[in-house]
């Protein structure tokens, strides 16, 4: 068993890395402690993540970064309350996570997350009315505010099947943000978009974040996206996912994208994930 040996190494390096001086006194918003996740396929029980521990603090854009199949999406689903860990605990806002809830709104990768029988505006109003119990007028007002924030005002009364992929994801983001969740969970939200749209969405998300400043947990397998979007990166090892590193990257944005520091960090993460070879 190769991974048994490596897992010990992983566990021993996690604890001492504390490069978040202010965090020592701060209470974490999300605390993941020794979480192992498993899911069943037709003929096997797959371990997605193994004893993962990390904290996410208020005001941060935490990114879970790892190669495909490292269990990062599964971990996000566990934070969302869609599945239970086989060991370890997930505490959010001081309480153990047991089921999905509107305090942790999720934006999924798939476009199917929008209700096809509701227009953009109605999609955003649905949880506001059904879950928060807002009146029609209140919900509509709030929905229009967030539609404006994601630049979809012209498309407020359009059904999802008429929208492009990027617009669908913007709707999903607006719907999640309108609920004013304590944390926004994003599961590779831009992975199904073309490269140009993806870049545009990344920069729009950052601009939006500047105005809203919500807590965020963002899953991606793109190193560039992680550095651009995140303020702190949790690097997960290849399958089964274990924490490889926690790195700060809040200083990078689109202006410093091709700076030396940016590329150094990129190479460093690349080496962690794929060995010494840069490619």
């Amino acid at each position: 068993m190769v991974f048994m040996g490596r897992q010990d190494m992983g566990a021993s390096t996690v604890a001492p890395v504390g490069r978040h001086p202010s965090a020592v006194t701060e209470d974490p918003l999300l605390s993941i402690d020794g979480v192992s996740l498993q899911y069943k396929t037709r003929d096997s029980l797959v371990t997605a993540t193994y004893q993962v521990s990390f904290n996410a603090y208020p005001g941060e854009r935490t990114v879970l970064l790892g190669p495909s199949g490292c269990g990062k999406s599964t971990l996000l689903k566990a934070v969302g309350g869609f599945m239970k860990p086989v060991e370890g605990t997930i505490r959010f806002n001081g309480k153990p996570v047991s089921k999905p809830g509107p305090d942790r709104m999720t934006v999924f990768q798939e476009f199917e997350q929008l209700m096809p029988w509701k227009t953009v505006k109605e999609n955003i109003m649905l949880p506001l009315r059904a879950s928060l119990g807002l009146s029609r007028a209140e919900a509509e007002k709030l929905a229009l505010t967030y539609i404006d924030k994601v630049n979809l005002t012209k498309f407020a009364n359009v059904y999802p099947h008429m929208l492009s992929g990027g617009m669908k994801q913007r709707t999903a983001i607006a719907r999640a943000l309108a609920m004013q969740p304590k944390i926004l969970l994003m599961d590779e939200p831009f992975a199904a978009l073309d490269a140009l749209t993806r870049r545009k969405m990344q920069s729009e998300l950052l601009q939006l974040w500047e105005t809203i400043r919500c807590n965020m947990l963002f899953v991606t397998h793109s190193i560039e996206e992680a550095i651009l979007v995140g303020s702190r990166i949790i690097v997960l090892s290849p399958h089964p996912g274990r924490v490889r590193a926690e790195l700060n990257c809040g200083e990078f944005d689109f202006d410093s994208e091709n700076s030396r520091e940016f590329n150094d960090l990129k190479d460093r993460i690349s080496a962690m994930l794929f060995g010494k070879d840069k490619h």
């Binding site: 999905p100 997350q113 209700m115």
Partner: peptide, 17 residues
Amino acid sequence: PETLRMAGQNFGLSRIS
């Protein structure tokens, strides 16, 4: 679709709703 179900569950609706 599973994603639509999860999106729905995420809203925190009652079972009937």
